[in-house]
Design a protein around this nucleic acid. Structure first.
Lengths: 337, 337
DNA sequence: TTTATCCATGACACCGGTGTCATAATGGTG
DNA sequence: CACCATTATGACACCGGTGTCATGGATAAA
């Protein structure tokens, strides 16, 4: 079985390879009859253009890279799902590149990646979507990129986010509406802009309802389950103990739940727990976690779609959007006793 | 800033591009002096070969595809981690391709994928690693592939697995040693060969210890959390109720735990629960799940390493290995009352 | 010293597409 | 009908590497 190339198609159709190329790319200036003839040969020979050859000629790879460093694996999975959906629609492929570096080492690593793969563009996910120096580097190299879930708005690039501040506000308000006033808060990783956003939403809700903010109720986490365990320990040791805990993501909330249960506290009777993200674990545990559902897949899909569009033809104004987050109430929150 | 290509290197070094190519690929028949000179120019010009051009010339893409359809996202994450490790060591990239199809549609989909990406090889993960027709198709197309975690041994291809049967045997024996004799079992997805393996291990342990196998204690699951909920319902409704449940993976075990807790059963006092895989959720919930740790990352890393080796130069005998699974005891299992 | 062998190197085609430009055919206008 | 603009098409170079083969000089064997 011989390989079917543009040359074999051309000779079968009795036209030049350039004409075949024109049909392939829907270029104008091909007569209807010729186009018809070539399309017929495509079918007969079951021809698919070689993306590598095309890439060489156009200096493109048809590959998008996805950069991440996130302790929440389920978040990454959702990011991938969204990115893949956009890629598949546009005949692009997705290359995944986990990366734990920061500063110069990060820049060098990404540089290396770009050298070795000739990626057409990058999707930056938190925390990389918030790094100005990385954005500057990519700009200097002229590599298109899109940022997902970043609160940094100054950078004039494609960006799709959800409203973390508002989500945090709503879930805090939900707790307040249940009568809670002593609401502990676990922060996320300081590198992520969402961390500050969620904290601000929490504080705004307290302020709106005339509840005094207390520093002692705030713990530093980093989005990992493990950090949640440490924070939970501190919080459950407080006296008086808060009646509710709002953790900046579901993994840390799950850690609070585990520790509380270990200590024979009943959730939500003795203490209410709220998370953020609506990760699978939020519904895999008992009681299920009240949380904020973020459209991670949709955010990423939009970001990648726009990224590819901007590769095909540079946009005048980069797409920027903020999607809605939504409160999901489950069994882990209840009225204060 | 001009692009640095093999031509600019050649003219700077005063040699032909072919000689540069020789140096690049560590080919013999280059004098030490020439090699030195070319290497120096590499440094000066900061040259990196263009993988696309190289791919065109050698009809290679330097990309491995990873095919999966698994309800367990954490399993996929681990597979990716292992595959990425192997790829990075060999300057390959990883393309991820989730796929929910079966039969002819599956074959067509993979065919399409191969047409459009010219992948150098595929890693098949469960359940695809068990599909003979897919393996046959890839053989006919002459596409190298490696299988991860498949119990199918007939196929003469690269395969790295862990001993599911033995793992299931050990964890069942662990329950028996705690005094349990009425041990319910939740099966996995029938498409996965691991499903049958784990079931066999369970039965072998019962037989070894003279415990009669009871059909009524077996439920059909499919590895998803949701299916675990359904199976758990049936099991907890049994009367007399079994004193232990062994679920074929941790997600289903977590579902049993959730339902049992909802029904105010105490785990492990009222009922012991065991899982399989050592997924993150096994330690994120309370009580932590007794389970079998499989070296998923390592399996995949070995598989991909061998796959790449076989692409570089065809092997006489495909690598096949079986790695050890290990019992992890946590709080979800205890002696029968 | 002559001949055969080996080594280092380069010229050139090739991989499978796309971009540029020339050219022939077609159509519209004065 | 002559002239110019437009459309359809192809020839050919090019993208940046690798494979094949020829060549000339160095080395070994006769």
């Amino acid at each position: 079985m011989k390989k079917v190339t543009i040359n074999s198609v051309a000779s079968h159709a009795g036209v030049s390879k350039k004409t075949v190329s024109r049909v392939l790319n829907n270029e104008p200036n091909v007569s209807a009859a010729t186009r018809e003839k070539v399309l017929k040969v495509f079918k007969e020979l079951d021809y698919t253009p070689n993306p590598i050859a095309r890439g060489l000629a156009q200096n493109r790879s048809f590959i998008i890279g996805c950069i991440y460093d996130n302790p929440s694996k389920s978040y990454i999975t959702r990011v991938q799902t969204g990115a893949l959906a956009a890629c598949q629609e546009n005949n692009y492929n997705l290359l995944i590149h986990p990366c734990e570096l920061r500063g110069d080492a990060l820049i060098n690593n990404i540089d290396q990646l770009l050298q070795s793969s000739r990626l057409d563009g990058l999707v930056l996910t938190p925390p990389f979507s918030d790094f100005a120096e990385l954005a500057d580097f990519l700009k200097s190299k002229n590599i298109p990129y899109a940022r997902v879930a970043s609160a940094v708005l100054e950078d004039d690039s494609i960006s799709v986010r959800s409203n973390d501040e508002q989500g945090a506000f709503e879930i805090t308000e939900h707790l307040i509406s249940l009568g809670h006033t002593a609401i502990a808060f676990i922060k996320g990783h300081p590198d992520h802009s969402a961390t500050e956003q969620r904290f601000m939403g929490y504080r705004r809700a307290l302020a709106t309802h005339g509840i005094e903010f207390e520093e002692r109720l705030v713990e530093e986490g980093n989005f990992s389950y493990h950090s949640g365990v440490d924070s939970a320990r501190s919080i459950l040791d407080l006296s008086p103990r808060p009646t509710a805990v709002f953790a900046s993501n579901d993994y840390m909330a799950a850690a609070v739940l585990k520790l509380a249960t270990q200590r024979s506290l009943k959730v939500p009777e003795d203490i209410s727990i709220a998370g953020f993200d609506n990760a699978p674990i939020a519904r895999h545990i008992w009681p299920g976690l009240t949380t904020i559902a973020q459209p991670v897949e949709e955010m990423t899909k939009q970001a990648v779609t726009q990224l590819i569009a901007s590769i095909v033809e540079p946009q005048e104004k980069p797409y920027q959007a903020t999607l809605e987050a939504k409160l999901i109430t489950r069994e882990s929150t209840a009225a204060v006793k």
